[in-house]
Write a protein that binds this DNA or RNA. Structure first.
Length: 109
DNA sequence: TGCGTGACGAGAA
DNA sequence: CTTCTCGCCACGC
């Protein structure tokens, strides 16, 4: 009954929620900010539970800027649609100008 | 109860 | 240079 483990997840959600509009972040960047540089996988896993929360998981992609997690969304291109809707150019699951829209919590936050 | 998996990332061969 | 393995730890079966 002590969801301390959720603490990590909660932090991930908290950071993800702070991602500005039209910007994206990476799992590793968030993990690094949380001090879990090698637990980037856990960040992605946390996104699994982001369903039903205010966490814009569609703004979180891997370090390469690829929409690797789009398969976990409702539709097939929902994630890409959301990003493009925010002004983020996405082609073939690859974010264009990724470095430009990349938001690093360790630097910006 | 125990083992394998997985929205990643970085180092090693 | 390319390709692969390891680490991290919660969740599913």
């Amino acid at each position: 009954m002590q969801p301390e483990t959720l603490n990590f997840f909660d932090k991930v959600y908290e950071v993800a929620k702070q991602i500005p509009f039209g910007r994206v972040s990476s799992y590793g960047a968030i993990a690094n900010y949380l001090g879990a540089t090698r637990s980037a996988r856990m960040v992605g896993y946390a996104m699994n539970g982001s369903s039903g929360k205010d966490v814009p998981a569609h703004r979180v992609v891997n370090k390469k800027g690829m929409l690797t997690g789009k398969h976990h969304f409702d539709g097939t291109n929902l994630m890409q649609q959301l990003l493009e809707s925010e002004g983020v150019e996405v082609i073939e699951n690859q974010i264009q100008n990724f470095q430009k829209v990349f938001w690093d919590p360790a630097k910006e936050l």
